[in-house]
């Protein structure tokens, strides 16, 4: 019983780290463009399989594989923006439908290339560590540390660099930002690419811990949505906070109550949050 609390602590941190990476990008894109990108889960899916292909099939070096996979993720993000989001900017429902179709397309595409059997990416380094009396794979350390570094870097990027400041400006007040001469289209494109990059990072760090399957994009998409709604759409700090709360709550559920409840937990959060507090924990934007 005592150990289980520590289990929750460690596995919850891992979950929270992954969710933070996924939700951060999703939420940023919403904040900047008011766009709900249903292809967000597909970014994760594609990176998993590309990474698998480059590293485990073509036997490239690990570091090179990671870099190549991330580059591809970023390119896919850019293409999604240019081909699907930009032309449909006035029609939010149009964007939702095409990005949904994009996600289905990618899922089927991967099915065609890789088949429906699950695949396994092996961890960067085999072995396990013990901490607080809990034994867990070393890969989890990569997940936690990698995610923390990235979240920190994104925070730094947004508050310090010129592009980051523009991102903030556009998401706070689009009209004012336009008047200041900021190219909102370019900023949104960069944001979508960042979101693809972060989802790709989440895939590279976390996918090696379990099997990859063709339909996993949807649950990651809805988890990202759940965290964003929970933390407040478009709010970065709310997002990270929400991710960790959600991570611990999910793990707590799965250890103490029921694994099924844990899987539907983020979805219930979506429903409850949309009903009770549509602007999220820290968000200001109305749904």
């Amino acid at each position: 019983m005592i150990f289980q609390i520590e289990n929750v602590l460690i596995f919850g941190t891992v979950q929270g780290s992954v969710l933070a990476l996924l939700a951060l990008g999703f939420s940023l894109v919403f904040g900047v463009g008011g766009v709900l990108n249903l292809g967000h889960g597909a970014f994760y899916l594609i990176t998993c399989y590309v990474f698998y292909l480059i590293w485990r099939v073509l036997f490239f070096d690990l570091i090179i594989s990671i870099i190549l996979s991330l580059i591809i993720a970023i390119i896919v993000g850019g293409v999604v923006y240019l081909a699907l989001i930009k032309p449909l900017q006035d029609s939010h429902i149009g964007i939702v439908i095409v990005t949904f179709a994009f996600a289905v397309f990618m899922q089927e595409f991967v099915k065609v290339i890789a088949g429906i059997k699950p695949h396994y990416i092996s961890p960067f380094i085999f072995g396990s560590v013990e901490f607080l009396g809990v034994t867990f794979p070393i890969q989890f350390v990569f997940v936690i540390i990698g995610s923390l570094i990235l979240v920190f870097l994104v925070g730094l990027f947004i508050s310090k660099t010129k592009i980051g400041k523009s991102i903030r400006a556009v998401s706070q007040d689009r009209e004012a930002a336009l008047l200041m001469g900021i190219n909102a289209d370019r900023i949104l494109m960069i944001t979508v690419m960042i979101s693809a990059f972060l989802a790709g990072m989440a895939a590279i760090l976390y996918a090696p811990t379990s099997a990859i399957t063709i339909d996993m994009g949807w649950s990651f998409l809805l988890s990202a949505f759940a965290v964003s709604v929970f933390g407040g759409m478009g709010s970065t700090s709310g997002c990270v906070l929400g991710a960790f709360i959600m991570g611990y709550a999910k793990t707590f559920c799965s250890v103490f109550i029921s694994p099924t409840l844990a899987t539907v937990f983020p979805l219930l959060v979506i429903v409850v949050m949309l009903l009770v507090r549509p602007q999220g924990l820290l968000g200001k934007k109305e749904v």
């Binding site: 429902i93 964007i95 949807w218 759940a226 979805l267 979506i270 749904v287």
Partner: peptide, 9 residues
């Protein structure tokens, strides 16, 4: 869009 995602949830 929220309806779309909410129903998908």
């Amino acid at each position: 869009p929220y309806l779309a995602l909410g129903t998908q949830a």
